[in-house]
Amino acid sequence: MFEARLPQGDLLKKILEAVKDLVTDANFDCSSTGISLQAMDSSHVSLVSLLMRADGFDHFRCDRNISIGLNLLAMSKVVRCVGNNDAVTMKADDNGDLVTLMFESQDGSKVSDWQLRGLDIDSERLGIPSTDYSSVVTMPSAEFARICRDLSVIGDTVVITTTKEGVTFASKGELGTGKIALRQSAAIDDDADSPGVSIELQEPVSQSFALRYLSFFTKATPLAPTVTISMSNGVPLVVEYPVGDMGHIRFYLAPKVED
């Protein structure tokens, strides 16, 4: 059997909000080490990779590896009923046909039980090569979301360029052009809510990406105050948000290339 209890149920809510518009159905792969999920969007341009380590749950039991296939839109609707301080318990039988989600309020005064039908999803897992990225930008997640939103007014593609001085996001379209430059900056009083912008630069990078997908990724903004964007020329970029201190959600996006 599989059973896992997450004291901060709102993490699961934020994860579902982050992926439900990008991926329809996905397998939650459960093993003794935790839960992982890997899924591509329907056009095979982007990929989401979620990791929740077993030690981040206050109870975790997985007798044998199972893949629990779920419709993420249906799951997100159920998980939206989680109160912010609720604990969430996920349970499944050994074949993953039926999945139970139980939400408990902090004082134990309210318990709700939901059952979702497991789906048989035939998904191939992609091998993601481990890469030393040329440029790694860490910045406030809300700022990244805002830049994606603001540049979408101008065009559908953003050129992200890193240099020693900073990072620029530029877009152009029929209306004109827009460019937003961020310089490296220190965090304000080490305050996690006011993170600065930092760039680890092995080599400068300049690469084009579809704003539509980056905007999908920014639905993960409520998960964390910072986001990390890792890039090398000629390969997909990775946008990573931590999931509490138990794992991460990573979004990969293939670049736009010259015609």
Partner: peptide, 14 residues
Amino acid sequence: SGKQASLTSFFGAS
């Protein structure tokens, strides 16, 4: 503004 590459051309099936 460029042609969208497919992710599968970078990441092979494992």
